[in-house]
Nucleic acid binder design. Structure first.
Lengths: 187, 187
DNA sequence: TCACTCATGTAATTGGTTACATGATTAG
DNA sequence: CTAATCATGTAACCAATTACATGAGTGA
């Protein structure tokens, strides 16, 4: 799991806003997204949790189960929420990689409505740009790549198209929600 | 660019089977796939090329251009092809991440027809499994994630669906090609 | 009893990013 | 003349994987 603009610590912190979790259960949760996000090793996960604890961004509680080994359940602190909030708001940079975007999506709760829309819109534009780039490469194969990489380009194009559709749909839904809210406030 | 089962060196080696390239032009090529694959830094690219050179898997030639700085163009050697071939054939492991798969696709030339089909089929099964997992998670939201991550799951599902369709189409095309070949041999 | 899941951790090594350093050419 | 593109490289730092180490309970 490489950093990119997405620091692993902050990501974990974000997951903990949803509910307290142990290192092991974080790993299991991430397993569901391994396809897009990759799976972190315990060798990175546990030290990250220790670091967060050390900075007072989380607290631990040892929970004993019958018929299972005890687990250390981590909860985010007030300070943790603060730090996450600051981190979540600032970047707005060109975080191009799919992985980073999905990780951000997983933390969607920590954005306000407008922030989320802004993120999605930004992403839409990025993917749209990539999409046209790919299309151009596919239709006008330069001497440097004749048949080569055609497969990968084609696959990338298919995914970009699907991603774009999804983003458009979501953005429509979200702006509809805004309109409904406004109607309610008027009526 | 993290390793995964996809070593960066082998990946470069694979790109060089398509045509000789300089470090800089490799970076540019990869730029087109940055969305899916991320972009490597020169700090990893150049040392990787030096290492390949050191192992006699590639050769260099300094090419001077008018009105441009000279570039070092690397070509794969016989030994390089050998090593790549061995590496490309063995793994067959569960390389779950999207990034690894796309990188593999970019090296598709280095598979024979059957090898490619095998890779795609394997991938298809993996994605199909992920797809059903995600569907299950979306439809039966466990207490642990109510609305949270719904967005990410939804997005993942959309991409998985698109990926699955693409794989099915490609596999159909490839098996059709096989049938055509057999017909030709008969007739 | 053997293997697997649950559950935590540390240490060595690898490998990548970031920042630094250089330098020519071209377009505004 | 300044910024950007082309083009290569090194060194310090940081982060992640891998391998190791432990241990209890469960199901075959």
């Amino acid at each position: 799991m490489s950093a990119g603009s997405m620091s692993f610590r902050h990501f974990i912190l974000g997951l903990l806003t949803q509910q307290p979790m142990s290192g092991y259960s974080i790993k299991c949760t991430l397993e569901n997204f391994s396809w897009l996000v990759g799976k972190p090793s315990f060798g990175s996960l546990y030290p990250a949790l220790h670091a967060l604890l050390n900075d007072n961004l989380v607290t631990v509680e040892v929970v004993t189960h019958e018929s299972k080994p005890p687990s250390k359940v981590y909860s985010i602190t007030q300070r943790g929420r603060q730090v996450l909030k600051e981190w979540v708001q600032q970047p707005a940079g060109t975080s191009t990689s799919l992985k980073d975007f999905v990780m951000r999506l997983m933390l969607a709760d920590n954005f306000d409505h407008d922030g989320l829309i802004a993120q999605l819109r930004q992403r839409r534009d990025q993917v749209a740009a990539h999409h046209t780039d790919l299309e151009h490469l596919v239709t006008t194969p330069s001497d440097s790549q004749k048949l080569q990489q055609q497969l990968a380009l084609d696959y990338g194009l298919a995914l970009a198209t699907a991603g774009l559709n999804w983003l458009d749909r979501k953005l429509d839904q979200l702006s509809e929600q805004v309109l409904l809210m406004e109607d309610l406030q008027k009526g």
